[in-house]
């Protein structure tokens, strides 16, 4: 012990390692517990985000040009597909308008103001991504000044892609739904079974980075193609946001519970413009 204390290099290394672990543990704890980041942290993040926005303009211009060229090549196929879809669109729009009107009238009759399915949309652009392959974190160009708060759901391409983990004044971090973060809040979801019943569960990620609908009772009743959407029960997201569709139903490795694989509806691989969902009903 005396030799250890007299060896200044060894002692310094030991102290540095302890300091590193203390800073790491402290900052991770702050990240998970605080609803809003520290002022210094928020300011620093917003300054770098401003730089990202500037750099993003020319890079996005080049990338957009390349994407446009690719889309022009696929225009004929896309046109044929849309023509097939458009025949049903008029009827669906009329039906939706009629149902919305009926829904408003029923809510008024029951004196209901906010329900689990009420929400407001906030549109934002993705400006950067965490450089590693594992953490699945994006940075968007809207923050608490636009009404964004921690744990709000984020959508892109017609489905949920993640949730807000940090809201700075002018930028926010989004953790993708495919993250393997053990401390991440999981989406509480539901799906309608063929016999009219509804099954509830949560969304988790399997070992090979695929989405799964877990903690489900009677999960085997779910057929491939069944839509899975948020139930609004978790307290953070509204009801009715599409997560994805069922692709396969299996038992887990212990054979104890059902594991239902889900194909995400949202554009997780290339989300350039996202929509943050602000839940209307009080938590």
């Amino acid at each position: 012990m005396k030799k250890f204390l007299q060896n200044k290099k060894l002692l310094s290394t030991f102290i540095v390692i302890i300091v590193i672990f203390a800073v790491l543990g402290g900052s991770v704890s702050l990240r998970n517990k605080r609803n809003a980041p520290l002022l210094v942290q928020s300011l620093g993040n917003d300054i770098v985000a401003l730089g990202s926005r500037i750099i993003d303009v020319p890079v996005g211009f080049i990338s957009g040009g390349l994407n446009n060229a690719h889309e022009i090549l696929n225009a004929q196929d896309e046109n044929n597909h849309l023509k097939r879809q458009i025949t049903n669109l008029g009827q669906t729009k009329v039906r939706n308008a009629s149902l919305e009107k009926e829904n408003r009238q029923l809510k008024a009759a029951l004196n209901l103001k906010d329900t689990l399915s009420g929400y407001i949309l906030i549109n934002a652009s993705v400006i950067s991504r965490a450089p590693d392959t594992w953490s699945d974190l994006l940075t968007i160009n809207k923050g608490s000044s636009s009404g964004i708060k921690k744990n709000m759901a984020v959508m892109c391409g017609g489905g949920v892609i993640g949730r807000i983990v940090e809201a700075n004044a002018a930028s926010s971090k989004v953790e993708l739904i495919t993250t393997t973060d053990e401390s991440a809040n999981r989406f509480s979801v539901q799906a309608d079974v063929a016999n009219g019943k509804t099954v509830h569960g949560i969304i988790t990620v399997t070992a090979n980075n695929q989405l799964a609908f877990t903690q489900v009772v009677d999960g085997r009743k779910l057929k491939a193609g069944t839509r899975v959407y948020t139930s609004g029960m978790g307290g953070n997201s509204p009801k009715g946001l599409l997560i994805g569709t069922v692709t396969q139903t299996t038992r887990d490795s212990f054979g104890l519970s059902d594991q239902i694989r889900i194909k995400p509806a949202g554009d997780i691989s290339d989300p350039s413009v996202v929509t943050v969902i602000e839940r209307q009903v009080a938590n």
Binding site: S27, V28, L30, P37, Q41, G44, N45, V48, P131, S135
Partner: peptide
């Protein structure tokens, strides 16, 4: 970089 990308230092 740590604060911007991950929200923790280390």
């Amino acid at each position: 970089a740590d604060i911007y990308f991950y929200g923790f230092i280390g």
